[in-house]
Design a protein around this nucleic acid. Structure first.
Lengths: 134, 134
DNA sequence: AGTATATTACGATAATAGTCGTATGTCAAC
DNA sequence: GTTGACATACGACTATTATCGTAATATACT
C-alpha cells in the first residue's frame, strides 16, 4: 500500500483522474465557485459529488479557497505548470524509461499535430536549449 | 462512477499506476514469469500481490499468458507503443487542452533533457512531419 | 419574522485498487 | 511414494476514490 497520506504534507500528492479534471477547469476559468466548476466539468454526477471532491482537494492542498459573501471561491493550490510538470514527470519515468523523445512519439501518434503545432514544439525545444545550463 | 467494466471488452481499460509498473517491466524484459516480474518491480510487496495483480490484468486483457511446464509466462496484451499512446493521449486532453507543445514543455521542465535528447526529439518531429497525411 | 433557495458540512455507501494468507497443485529428488 | 520447494487460485481485508443523501447554515425576498 502507498504510505498513509496525512493532511500535513509539504507537497500535495498527484491529483487523481477526477481531481485533475477539476483542476483543469480551474486552470481554464481561474478562481471559481463549486457551482461554476460543477457546470464546467460537465459530467453526469450530482452537485454534492463535485463539492465533496473539492473539499477533499482542499484537504490535500490541491486547491485553496476563500470566502466570498455567499459561497466559497476556489483556485489551484499549486501553479498549473508545476502540477503539469509533476504529472508528466511521473509518467515519463513510469512508462517511457525517462525518455522525452518516446513520450513525444506517443503524444503525436495519439493525436496527430498540425504543421503549426509541430513548429510550436520545435520553438519550444529551441527555447529550452537556449536556456540550458542556467 | 465509471461504467461497470465487464471482462468482454474489445479494448482493455487504461492500466492503473501499479499495472503500468508491471507493464513497464514486461516491456523491458519481454515474456516473463510472475517471479521475474516481481523481482524486477522491486517494491516492498509480497509475491502473491504481484501474482494477483497480474491475474487481474489477464482478466482485463492487459496481458496474455502461456503455460511453460511449471509456471506461466506473461507478456503485454497490447503493443507497447499503442498503450503508451493511449495513456499520453488521455493525459493530453485531460491536462494539456490537447496541446502537445505544452506537454513537451511540461516534460522538459520535469526532467531536463540533454542536447542529444533534444536532437532526438527534433528528429522524431521531422519524421512525423514527413509521414503526415498518410 | 417567515419562507424559499442556494450553499456547505458531513456521514454513509459503493466501486476500485492494492494487499496478503491459505489452500491447492505440480514437479523433482530422494 | 513422501517430502520439499515453488506456483497458482482465490477469498478476505484495507485503503482510496467516487458517489450521494440529508442536515445545518446562510442569504434573499416578501
Amino acid at each position: 500500500m502507498p504510505p498513509k497520506r496525512t493532511e500535513t504534507e509539504s507537497v500535495p500528492p498527484l491529483p487523481t483522474a477526477g481531481e485533475l479534471d477539476i483542476l483543469a477547469v480551474l486552470w481554464r476559468l481561474g478562481p471559481a465557485t463549486v457551482r461554476e466548476v460543477h457546470e464546467a466539468v460537465n459530467k453526469e454526477i450530482g452537485y454534492t459529488t463535485t463539492l465533496k471532491q473539492m473539499q477533499v482537494m482542499l484537504d490535500k492542498k490541491l486547491v485553496i479557497r476563500s470566502e466570498r459573501f455567499r459561497s466559497h471561491v476556489y483556485e489551484a493550490g499549486i501553479p498549473k505548470g508545476q502540477t503539469q510538470s509533476r504529472i508528466v514527470g511521473d509518467l515519463l519515468v513510469r512508462a517511457f524509461e525517462g525518455s522525452a523523445a518516446r513520450l513525444v512519439m506517443g503524444a503525436l501518434s495519439a493525436k496527430p499535430a498540425s504543421k503549426g503545432e509541430l513548429n510550436e514544439i520545435r520553438r519550444m525545444i529551441d527555447e529550452f536549449e537556449k536556456g540550458m545550463g542556467r
